[in-house]
C-alpha cells in the first residue's frame, strides 16, 4: 500500500481556502456595496431605509430559497413569477368572497404548492426538461391569474389583508410634540421575520435532512443517486413543490403589501430568484449551492436596486448594472473552478 500512500497528494488546505474565498467573496461584495452607497447617499445608512431594503428583498429571497433547492437538483423553475401572481389573486379573491384572510392566504400558498407539484410531475413522469415544463407553467399560471380576475386588480380587501405585508413587530410610535405620531423605531416587519425563519428552515433542510442530502446527490450525479436507492422522482417533485409553496407565500406577502391582488404582479421575478441563487454560488449544473449564499445574493440585488435608486440612477441603467453583476460573479466562479 506504500504506493498509494505516496501517491495521494495532500490537498485539504488548498480546498478549504478556495471555499473560504467563495464564501467571503459574495459577503465582501455585499459589504462593499453598503459602504459605497453609504458614502454616496446620506439617506442610505438609516434604520428606516434598512427596513425598506429588507422588506423589498423578501420577495426575491422567498423565491430564491425555492430556486436554490430546485437548481441544486440540476433543474430550474421559471414559473415562480407567474405562480406568485396566481397565488396572490387566489388569496385576494377568496378574501373578497368573505373567507377569513388567514385561510385565504393558506389557500394561496397551497395553490403555489399545487403548481409546483404539477411541475414536478411533468418533469419526472412525463420526462420533460425542467426548462420547458416550468416555461409552460409560467404561461398557464399567468393566464389563469388574468382569467380569474378578468385582468383587473382585486382591491378593497380590508385592512386585515395588509397585515402580513405591512405589519411590524416591535414598532415604536410616540406622539410627537406637534400631536402627529412619530416613528421612533419602525419595527421589524412580519415579512422580514418570515424570511429569516424560512431561510433558517431551508438551510437546516438542506444541511441536516436526508431530503436535503438527496437534492445534492441528484444534482451531483443523478444516476449514482438512483443506483444508490435514492427516490429520485419523489425528491425532485419535493423540490418543485417547495419552490411553488414559497412562490405562493411570496405572492401573498406581495399582494398584502399592496393590499390589492394584482394579476400582473411578479413578471420576471423568476429571473431575480435565479440570479440571487447564482450570485450566491449555486451552480446551474447542479450539486452545489447554499441558502446563506442565496440570501446574500438576494441582498446584493436588493441593495443594488435601493442604493442605485437613491443615487438617482434610472431603472434602465440599474438593469444594465445588475446584468453585469450576474455575468461578473458567475465568471469569477468559473475561473475559480477552472483551476
Amino acid at each position: 500500500m506504500a504506493i498509494t500512500e505516496a501517491g495521494v497528494p495532500e490537498r485539504k488546505y488548498n480546498i478549504d481556502k478556495r471555499d473560504l474565498i467563495q464564501k467571503f467573496a459574495a459577503l465582501a461584495g455585499l459589504l462593499l456595496l453598503v459602504v459605497a452607497f453609504s458614502m454616496t447617499s446620506s439617506a442610505f445608512m438609516t434604520v428606516s431605509n434598512g427596513v425598506t431594503i429588507a422588506l423589498q428583498t423578501t420577495s426575491i429571497a422567498f423565491l430564491g430559497l425555492g430556486a436554490t433547492c430546485v437548481i441544486i437538483t440540476g433543474g430550474i423553475d421559471l414559473s415562480v413569477g407567474s405562480v406568485l401572481a396566481l397565488a396572490g389573486v387566489v388569496a385576494g379573491l377568496a378574501t373578497k368572497a368573505g373567507v377569513p384572510v388567514s385561510i385565504s392566504m393558506i389557500a394561496g400558498i397551497l395553490t403555489g404548492g399545487v403548481c409546483g407539484w404539477v411541475n414536478g410531475i411533468v418533469i419526472t413522469r412525463m420526462k420533460l426538461p425542467p426548462f420547458i415544463a416550468t416555461l409552460g407553467m409560467m404561461m398557464v399560471a399567468r393566464g389563469l391569474a388574468l382569467q380569474i380576475t378578468g385582468a383587473r386588480a382585486v382591491s378593497g380587501l380590508g385592512d386585515d389583508f395588509g397585515i402580513l405585508g405591512n405589519g411590524s413587530f416591535m414598532r415604536i410610535v410616540e406622539e410627537g410634540a406637534n400631536g402627529f405620531p412619530k416613528v421612533v423605531f419602525p419595527g421589524v416587519s412580519y415579512a422580514v421575520i418570515l424570511m429569516a425563519v424560512l431561510a433558517i428552515v431551508c438551510a437546516i433542510v438542506l444541511a441536516k435532512t436526508t431530503f436535503g442530502r438527496h437534492l445534492y446527490a441528484i444534482g451531483s450525479n443523478e444516476e449514482a443517486a438512483r443506483l444508490s436507492g435514492v427516490h429520485v422522482d419523489r425528491t425532485k417533485i419535493g423540490a418543485y413543490v417547495l419552490s411553488g409553496l414559497l412562490a405562493g407565500l411570496s405572492g401573498c406577502v406581495l399582494m398584502s403589501r399592496l393590499v390589492t391582488a394584482q394579476p400582473n404582479e411578479g413578471v420576471a421575478y423568476e429571473l431575480d430568484a435565479i440570479a440571487s441563487a447564482v450570485i450566491g454560488g449555486t451552480s446551474l449544473v447542479g450539486g452545489v449551492g447554499t441558502i446563506s449564499g442565496t440570501v446574500i445574493g438576494a441582498f446584493i440585488i436588493g441593495i443594488l436596486r435601493n442604493g442605485l435608486n437613491m443615487n438617482g440612477v434610472s431603472s434602465f441603467i440599474q438593469m444594465i448594472i445588475i446584468g453585469l453583476v450576474i455575468i461578473g460573479t458567475v465568471w469569477i466562479d468559473q475561473l475559480r473552478n477552472r483551476r
Binding site: 436526508t210 442530502r213 438527496h214 445534492y216 446527490a217 444534482g219 451531483s220 450525479n221 444516476e223 449514482a224 443517486a225 443506483l227 444508490s228 436507492g229 435514492v230 450539486g287 452545489v288
Partner: peptide
C-alpha cells in the same frame, strides 16, 4: 464517475448515500 460516485459530494456523503436511514 458516471454512475457510481457523486464527485461533488464528500467521502462521508458518498458512503452513507445508499443507507441514509
Amino acid at each position: 464517475k458516471l454512475n457510481g460516485l457523486a464527485v461533488k459530494m464528500s467521502v462521508k456523503d458518498n458512503i452513507t448515500m445508499a443507507n441514509m436511514e
